[in-house]
Design a protein around this nucleic acid. Structure first.
Length: 349
DNA sequence: GGCGCGCGCGCC
DNA sequence: GGCGCGCGCGCC
């Protein structure tokens, strides 16, 4: 399962390079390797070297290919799995029930989970057919190297929106956004695997590890591990933080925020400018006005002056001297129609 | 010392 | 979650 998780995170081109090294590292015929897909490859590696040794060798290949993000993450997962195996072995027989319930709590997308995942790779939510663009992949690995947070962080879920389809580095997939908080802070989360939705239930405390920290938001990927916290380890979030987390920021405040700040909120529209591949919305509140740029809306939602727009995961962005809110690849945009004024009386006295 | 801004709280 | 009020702090 560890292997498969690692292999799922590389492109087809990288897979070919992996196989090139695998021929010498493992004693497998090149012809057999070449036709293997990710699942078959993982199977062959294990057949050839045994599960434990196959992981070690795979890590060494990832290191040779300089895919350090993946190598490190695999190494970490391996250690995790080993320590789990040790405790399970010790407890076996006396506390079998408890260890099983632990495994069940663990998400399907986690690499340390039951071999069910191994037999059904589609259940991991990672799309093996995806052909990410090379440049994006490099950027992603950079991010993994710099921002991968391995230590579990306990947070309380404040809010989670319904999953929706969006274009990511791994192709088109279901993602969702959430807001979570610790005792002292709240932050927004981008979850790139809709299977985690059943963990992101408001008021629940969850532990997230192997997530990416993007300076102003958290990114949970298929590589991350999300588990329910033990009932006696609940995070208690003060009311003022909960309230602040859900508030729409004031426009004058947004003007002072650095580029890249993630913005969620409900705004009143006063002007709409439609262009071919984009729509500009003029928004206002009691503190000022601002522009919202929504890119690439194939289906332009009908919006009129006076309606409101709900923005999720928009970014503060600079367009020349002008500060605006811009949609990113994973932004969510919704028009909320203004309440219709009471329809005209049919008969006037 | 006065004014203004920002934050927190409570009501709707 | 929006809105409005009040309080406290910092600057002139």
């Amino acid at each position: 399962m560890l292997l498969l998780t690692g292999l799922d995170h590389i492109t087809d081109e990288e897979l070919r390079r992996f196989k090139y090294f695998a021929v010498t590292e493992f004693k497998i015929a090149r012809s057999t390797l070449n036709t293997a897909d990710r699942t078959e490859l993982a199977d062959q590696l294990i057949q050839s070297a045994g599960a434990a040794s196959a992981v070690v060798k795979a890590i060494s290949i990832f290191q040779k290919l300089n895919y350090m993000g993946i190598a490190n993450a695999l190494e970490e997962k391996k250690k995790e799995a080993e320590s789990k195996y040790m405790t399970n072995t010790k407890k076996r027989g006396t506390q079998k029930v408890e260890s099983r319930s632990k495994a069940e709590k663990c998400s399907v997308a986690s690499a340390t989970c039951s071999d069910k995942v191994f037999k059904e790779p589609s259940a991991t939510g990672v799309c093996p057919q995806a052909k990410p663009q090379k440049k994006q992949m490099v950027a992603e690995q950079e991010a993994i190297r710099e921002d991968l947070q391995r230590d579990p962080l306990a947070v309380m879920v404040l809010k989670a929106i319904n999953p929706f389809e969006c274009e990511t580095q791994e192709g088109r997939q279901e993602i969702f956004h959430a807001t979570v908080a610790t005792e002292t802070d709240f932050f927004f989360v981008k979850v790139l695997n809709a299977q985690f939705k059943d963990k992101f239930i408001p008021k629940r405390t969850i532990k997230i590890s192997n997530y990416l920290w993007h300076s102003n938001f958290m990114e949970v990927t298929s590589f991350s591990v999300v588990v329910d916290a033990e009932s006696n380890h609940e995070v208690r979030v003060p009311d003022n933080i909960i309230k602040k987390a859900g508030k729409t920021p004031k426009i004058n405040k947004l003007r002072t925020q650095p580029c890249g700040t993630i913005v969620n909120g409900l705004f009143k529209v006063q002007k709409i400018t439609e262009q071919e591949d984009r729509v500009l919305y003029g928004i206002h509140d009691g503190t000022g006005t601002m522009e919202v740029l929504v890119l690439g809306t194939q289906s332009k939602p009908k919006c009129e002056e006076g309606d409101k727009i709900r923005l999720t995961f928009f970014e503060v962005s600079k367009n020349g001297e002008k500060i605006q809110l811009k949609s990113g690849p994973c932004s969510f945009f919704k028009v909320i129609k203004a309440a219709k004024p009471k329809t005209e009386m049919k008969s006037v006295e």
